[in-house]
Design a binder for these strands. Structure first.
Ligand code: MN
Ligand code: MN
Ligand code: ZN
Ligand code: ZN
Lengths: 164, 164
DNA sequence: TCGAAATTGAATTTAGATTTCAAAATGAGA
DNA sequence: TCTCATTTTGAAATCTAAATTCAATTTCGA
């Protein structure tokens, strides 16, 4: 992980300004729903619609999950978010507002997601593409397995079940 | 692509023997539905349930798509098939009966899938894992872009629409 | 403040996949 | 070859994530 999310109050003011700017650019309206959803989304790294909806509902239970879907779609269009499909489950939205391209290590035991980038891998990807006269526009590299914490747990099988 | 599917008649007899052996091992019954579905599946590289169902229906329209789902699930359990989720669309079933691990180049224009393997990339993946004290159990590397044919077409925009 | 235009939330729909269940088939043993 | 317990099948129903529809509400520039 290269970038760390800045402190909550900075995120809050920055994300509000960012959101307002993007909305104006596109002739869209600033609603309190969009404001809250974007603020909570931009405060974290990776989240599902369901989980973000739950967070949103804590602050304003009148907001519908469908508005969460729609707001995340907007954030994707503006490249503040990116859809990810790890495993076969629900879509995970990656907060890429302060991040460059990166790939992921995904723990199949506790669902932790670790970000990384490796330029050597990317160079060999280009080599593979050249060999096949292929032109890469984007790529996904996902490494699944056990994170540091879950590897430790593995030697104590009794603790396995306390993980998601 | 390292392995090429052998000629149809060899595949047919081989796949029937293979299927029969696996079914016996697991105390399951050899039905003509399973025989046809497996034979047609093992004859190609990558296919969706829908497309395989269409192939099956040409030979025996009485077979239900649900049996195609169920048979592919069996083939996956026996590691003759593997589910892949390219893009966000339907599941693609990869015929891995004669293949070792490999990754994919996916053309976003014509949907062509090219298989490759690159040991240097895999080595750097292990390096990344070591850096994060992570233990990789499996991975996915997908390179999206334009294949050789579609790059050529791109300089003649009028031909674009003839592709899927 | 007004009012056109955008946005919202609930209900409905879609799409892919899974589950349920009665009828049909398979195949081991007689 | 016949019997019959067990497995398998196909259709329909169900499930889940996500998209669409639409009347009511909100936003924001004039
Ligand atoms: Mn990420
Ligand atoms: Mn493949
Ligand atoms: Zn873990
Ligand atoms: Zn192509």
């Amino acid at each position: 992980m290269r970038t760390r999310s800045p402190s909550s109050s900075i995120v809050k003011s920055q994300s509000k300004a960012l959101l307002h700017a993007r909305l104006r650019e596109h002739g869209l309206k600033l609603t309190h729903q969009r404001e809250l959803i974007a603020e909570l989304f931009l405060r974290q790294d990776h989240i599902t619609v369901e989980d973000l909806y739950r967070e949103v509902a804590k602050k304003d239970p009148s907001i519908g999950i469908i508005t969460v879907y729609r707001t995340l779609k907007l954030l994707c269009q503006w490249e503040l978010a990116q859809e990810r499909h790890f495993g076969k489950g629900k879509t995970i939205y990656d907060n890429v507002a302060q991040k460059a391209h990166h790939d992921h290590l995904i723990c199949t035991h506790c669902a932790r997601i670790i970000e990384f980038e490796n330029f050597q891998i990317e160079k060999f990807q280009e080599q593979v593409a050249r060999d096949h006269e292929f032109h890469i526009t984007f790529h996904k590299l996902e490494l699944y397995g056990l994170c540091k914490a879950c590897r430790r747990d593995d030697v104590r099988p009794s603790r396995r079940s306390e993980h998601a």
